[in-house]
Amino acid sequence: MTHLPYILASYGLFTGIALVLGCGAAFRLKKARTRLAALDRTSPRPSGAAPSP
């Protein structure tokens, strides 16, 4: 393959950015979900859960 370093750098950058963004979002979602579940257990009916009219 010609220009291999440039190609590898491009695909590597893409993989790196995708991994950082994807894993970051996944961890943040997981943390928020467990936190919310724990709070819902301690205060059973939070005001925010009821849909606004």
């Binding site: 979002a25 943040r28 979602l29 943390k31 928020a32 979900r33 936190r35 919310l36 709070l39 205060s43 939070p46 005001s47 925010g48 859960a49």
Partner: peptide
């Protein structure tokens, strides 16, 4: 990210 943000804002309001 948006789902996490909605949950976080709900956590803050609780």
């Amino acid at each position: 990210r948006l789902r996490a943000a909605v949950m976080e804002s709900r956590i803050r309001s609780i």
